[in-house]
Amino acid sequence: DRMTSQEAACFPDIISGPQQTQKVFLFIRNRTLQLWLDNPKIQLTFEATLQQLEAPYNSDTVLVHRVHSYLERHGLINF
């Protein structure tokens, strides 16, 4: 699994950072998509996403918020 070119453009700090940071991003992105796909008729809020993310992935709330906002803005969740 890899970041898309659009994700890389929107998250230059992640793509240029350590490999582990990219893996954390990918986990948060994929898990958020999975959470929404589990029940697409219900809006997936940032707060609900954060509550359902497993530790330690829920510890970087800023990154979780950025990923959630990106997915929502680009019509990948909550459409």
Rank of each mutant, 00 (worst) to 15 (best):
L35K: 05
L63I: 06
L44P: 00
D60Y: 14
F46E: 13
Q43P: 15
A48T: 12
E47F: 06
K23W: 08
I28S: 01
P40A: 08
N39F: 05
A48Q: 14
L53P: 00
H74I: 11
Q51N: 15
I14K: 00
H74C: 12
S69N: 11
D60M: 11
F79A: 15
D13A: 03
Q22F: 08
R31E: 04
D38V: 09
D60C: 06
R2V: 04
H74V: 14
I15H: 12
Q52Y: 10
P12A: 09
A55C: 11
F46R: 08
E47K: 11
S5L: 13
V62E: 15
R66F: 03
L35S: 08
P56R: 04
Q19F: 08
T61A: 09
S59E: 10
L35N: 03
Q19K: 13
R31Q: 11
N30G: 04
W36Y: 15
I28A: 03
L37W: 10
I42E: 11
F11S: 01
S59A: 14
S69D: 14
L63H: 00
L76G: 05
F79Y: 15
L33H: 10
E7L: 00
K23A: 15
R29L: 04
Q52W: 07
Q6R: 11
S59T: 12
L76M: 15
A9V: 11
T32Y: 01
V64F: 02
E54C: 10
Q22I: 14
Q19Y: 11
S69R: 13
D1T: 08
K41F: 09
L35M: 13
L26S: 10
R31G: 04
I77W: 01
H74R: 11
I77T: 02
F46D: 04
N78E: 00
V62L: 12
I15A: 11
S16W: 08
M3S: 03
G75P: 00
F79V: 11
L53C: 05
E7K: 02
A9E: 11
R2Q: 11
T4W: 04
L50T: 04
P40V: 06
H68A: 00
Y70V: 01
P12R: 06
I14T: 02
T32R: 00
P56E: 05
Y70T: 02
L37H: 06
T45Y: 04
L53G: 02
R31H: 11
L35I: 15
D1R: 03
F25Y: 09
D13R: 03
E47A: 08
E47H: 10
R2A: 05
I28W: 00
I42R: 11
T61M: 11
T32V: 12
L37F: 14
V64L: 04
V67N: 02
E72T: 09
F11V: 02
I15D: 07
D1A: 06
P40K: 08
F27G: 14
S59F: 15
Q51R: 14
L53W: 02
R66C: 03
L76P: 00
Q51G: 12
Q43S: 13
F79M: 15
Q19G: 12
W36L: 02
Q20M: 11
L50C: 08
C10E: 15
Q51T: 12
R73V: 13
S69I: 06
S5A: 13
P18E: 12
S59H: 15
R73I: 07
L76N: 06
Q19W: 12
R2W: 11
I28N: 04
P56H: 03
A55E: 14
L35G: 04
L76V: 11
D1P: 04
P40M: 08
H74Q: 14
L50P: 02
D13N: 04
W36E: 01
R31F: 11
V24I: 09
T61D: 09
I42C: 12
V24Y: 08
Q51L: 10
T21H: 12
S59D: 11
E54F: 06
V62I: 13
H68M: 04
Q34K: 15
F27A: 15
F27C: 12
S5E: 14
T49S: 06
D13E: 15
T49M: 08
A55D: 15
T21A: 13
R73D: 14
V67F: 01
F25T: 02
Q19M: 11
N30D: 08
D60Q: 12
